[in-house]
Design a protein around this nucleic acid. Sequence first.
DNA 1: GGAAATGATGTAATCATTTACACGCTTGTG
DNA 2: CACAAGCGTGTAAATGATTACATCATTTCC
Lengths: 336, 336
Amino acid sequence: MNIYDISKRAGVSIATVSRVLNDSPHVSPATRQRVMAVINDSGYVPNAFARGLGLNTMKTIGLLCPDASDTYQSQALAYLENAFRSRNYDCVLSCTGKTLEARTTGVEQLKSRHVDGMVLMGSSFIENNDKDNDYIRQAAKSVPLILLNGSFACERVYCVLCDDQRATMEAAQHLLDTGCKRILYLYHSKNYSGRKKLAGYRAALKNRGVELDDELLCYFDQDKMSVLDVRDHLLEMEKKGVSFDAVLASEDSLAIGAMKYARAAGKRIPEDMSVVGYNNSSFCLFTEPELTSVDNKLKAICDHIVETMMGVLEGKEMPQKTVFTGEVVLRQSTRK
Amino acid sequence: MNIYDISKRAGVSIATVSRVLNDSPHVSPATRQRVMAVINDSGYVPNAFARGLGLNTMKTIGLLCPDASDTYQSQALAYLENAFRSRNYDCVLSCTGKTLEARTTGVEQLKSRHVDGMVLMGSSFIENNDKDNDYIRQAAKSVPLILLNGSFACERVYCVLCDDQRATMEAAQHLLDTGCKRILYLYHSKNYSGRKKLAGYRAALKNRGVELDDELLCYFDQDKMSVLDVRDHLLEMEKKGVSFDAVLASEDSLAIGAMKYARAAGKRIPEDMSVVGYNNSSFCLFTEPELTSVDNKLKAICDHIVETMMGVLEGKEMPQKTVFTGEVVLRQSTRK
DNA sequence: GGAAATGATGTAATCATTTACACGCTTGTG
DNA sequence: CACAAGCGTGTAAATGATTACATCATTTCC
């Protein structure tokens, strides 16, 4: 069942059927109705590949993320998918994992699929060694790219992000301003956004005249950052004699690990120790006490990404970089 | 840059280029090498739409889920996407929400995209009123469908699921066998899987000779089931004089709501009240005490879905329904 | 040495659309 | 009344691959 069958049944040419299908104004109402009737009762569905060939697009956006099961990324996926869908674009998912090689092939695959645009989630797509970013420059030549929470200057690459440095700084300052003296900083990423957050932590100390103690910087490897890993690591630190009265984490799950530690070590939150997370995930409400966390405006970022993509695809001039301001959401794990 | 350009540059016909691209054995090594060289230094990428038109497939699977931000569904998405990708299939995502209409159009859209197969996540895709399932029967005519945790008898519809009834029964029996007398049952779904779980709860009571008290069946509406909603609802029940010494939930987040309630009501877990969740989500470890939960073998289910899909696409005969057995993972929220 | 088999390559049909262009008919205008 | 404009429609040329079939050269076998 193809457009030719329909045209025969309706007694018109295939061009006319095509016009009806594409809502062209150059069809008389009577003809349109007749063709529509035939289409409806034949159950005909236009062939998407032929259409794609003719129009050179199948209205598809590629969504790349390291791990779709991660709370933050899956939230972003949901936002993006919905917004793109409402604009009649479908999304192809590519969960590439963390290795450079996998990301590169992920991007290549989507390119060979002729997607109209790509969204790269998380600054881990940008390598610290600039030479490794060639795959992005390469891809950007044939397709517009938007980075979620990443920063990269290149033609046809757009960036939408949260000012993680400022948000982290405010979180740390809030801890200092509520009487905390020694803030343990838990982080898990050394890429763009990870560096910005760390810089925010440092800036806060500087602003409040507190000296940085390197002992308080606590890095966790991607595959060694479960709540239990964190708990155990902090217990270890305590044993070693490192003292702290607050924890600031670059991600909520790390903060929850810190809360686990507090329970194990018999410390009360926030009386003996304050805790602040990052991302303001849904499970900030799961814990007891509820977790103070940084809302980094994911919804707004996603909405703006979709806007930007649509603009670019329509050939409009769009801002290369848009920055949103995060916000510390105060809950029970920090003092007043 | 198309196949014709390549053929000219390499001094061969387009058929030969196509053969090289498709790893056909009917090409001499010398020619293959020459063509590959041209392809590599021209940066040529075959046009996916033309290819799709010729082969009548773009190796794409449609993944439908109500909400990609849900922990369970995003976990499934990640498993499925990875397994399909490793078999050279891309996944198109469609988060349809909960209304029948949205699901119907979601399925239609993917059908019109000519996906090779579709995976429908969650039994909420199956309506209790059978007439509303016509959209599934319709879609199954043109594309193989696999239901994750759903059950539906229809040609070209395959089902892969966990025996939720049995798993729930075992969870409830464990509660009864460890001294609990009155188990509050929290649930949020009345579709297939929801009914099975409830039946499991009932069966457990029957097996242990405990009479069912309807007061202990506690339903939560989809948009009124946050941890705080649950906590408040249980506080309310306590005020009304409903007594219980255990909570069995049809989903982990409901169980966490019950733990919130325990904290608010000053009850100790598991001494005063046991709690069991369902899905064995990653955040079962986040809570204090850690949450006993039912592992419903999502990974195995997803792997089997992908196997089944591949078999079907290769024209093999595949089992219509495969059932896995869940397992109660004992942690600290239940007694020994 | 000639028939047959094999192997590499090219020719051209096919896939199902979109769309530029052409054509004829009606209507409006000077 | 002639001519232009516009509208509805059809014809046919793209779009860029795959692949059945034909062709030609080479080897194999009797």
